[in-house]
Design a protein around this nucleic acid. Structure first.
Lengths: 213, 213
DNA sequence: CAAAACCGACTGACGCGTCGGTTGGTAAGA
DNA sequence: TCTTACCAACCGACGCGTCAGTCGGTTTTG
């Protein structure tokens, strides 16, 4: 019983993993169900036993990835008390997550666009969630008096776009340079955009060690 | 003779216009050559007389749109002497151009992504061009001492992304609010991000009114 | 053994690109 | 002037490959 669930779930999981690979390699349209079946070491029938259609698989992947990212970002945020550092931490977290999962990033940022009208709603929802996450933190920072008031809604969208583009750029080139390397410059740029004075040198205490310099 | 050329070109033009409409409405993959033929009031054969295949039509549209945008932005830039205002002018120009051509924007920002691996090179080139345009102006401003030094390359990418996202957001919603309305907030955000002190109150001369604040 | 899970050959729809044929116009011959 | 030859531009039915999704049959499991 539990065993059954387990096995069923494991197979379903294999299919999802295979689908992630195929989708991010071939793109949504060019990914054939036969490819997914082959890569997950099942069969077309097996895939269709677990999922009603191709679209559902893609949507499931999007959902899962979005919530993974959101969760990670949120937990990075909660670990920091200072509103500005919270934002920095979330930024770094996202860069790291994408940096470790190029195919995930590709699926999410490249293939999901233009995959078809049917996905626009979901994409819109995901974008809204992320932009909203940023907007909320900015509002928080404004409320705390850490930054001057501004159009946080637009800023959320613009920030999301900026981050998006940096990652996309990294995905579309065979750029061997790790994504994380862009963190300091991007952080500074974003900080300035909301009126954080200068680059704030006072954040050594984060780790116990007393670094020089 | 000349007449013939004219007619041939006119037809080709009709096909391109129709293709723009169909692609932006249906997306690249779902756009059928029959649709384009129908909408341009020709026939499939007629279309294939002027273009070797579907891909070429799409690429031609992308190219044309990219150079239109670039030209407009550049000319807006040349009309302004001050390096900061140049950037503002280009931003406004781009917002206006997209604002007047939703389907163009859709084609450019939504459908062109994920249209297929074959288009990645072209998209990368276009992105690089735009980001490069921004980077160049930023370098200019840095050289002129109008802003402090910064990673202009990353800034170019991030700015492009921010702009991109704001427009995309506008494209994907049935948001009736004109795109141009976002100009002031976006301008201020971008200005601050590169360390332009405050919001620079000294540009009222544009319109006679003396804003309060 | 019954049900759940799985298999893979098959079907049906769809759309790109092709190709034989048509047309409207121009120019060469008579 | 009329007729014949020619040609670029145009037409649209169809060939053909490609998949998403189906279904009857088989294996696994409890």
């Amino acid at each position: 019983m539990v065993r059954d669930q387990r096995k069923g779930e494991a197979r379903k999981e294999r299919i999802l993993e295979a689908a992630l690979g195929v989708f991010s390699r071939r793109g949504y349209r060019d990914a054939a169900m036969d490819d997914i079946a082959g890569e997950s070491e099942t069969s077309k029938g097996g895939v269709y036993f677990h999922f009603p259609n191709k679209q559902t698989i893609f949507l499931a992947l999007l959902d899962r990835m979005a919530s993974l990212l959101m969760r990670r970002a949120e937990s990075a945020i909660e670990a920091e008390p200072d509103p500005i550092k919270r934002i920095d931490a979330a930024l770094l977290m996202v860069l790291r997550t994408f940096g470790d999962h190029r195919s995930l990033a590709r699926l999410f940022l490249v293939e999901a666009m233009g995959a078809g009208r049917e996905f626009n709603d979901k994409m819109l929802e995901i974008r809204a969630n992320f932009a909203g996450l940023i907007t909320r933190r900015l509002d928080e920072a404004v409320a705390a008096g850490a930054i001057p008031p501004l159009d946080t809604h637009l800023a959320g969208i613009a920030w999301f776009g900026a981050l998006n583009e940096v990652v996309t750029h990294w995905v579309l080139t065979e750029d061997p340079e790790p994504l994380e390397h862009h963190y300091p410059a991007l952080r500074d740029l974003l900080r300035r955009s909301i009126g954080v004075s200068g680059v704030l040198i006072e954040d050594q205490p984060t780790d116990g060690t007393n670094n020089g310099s």
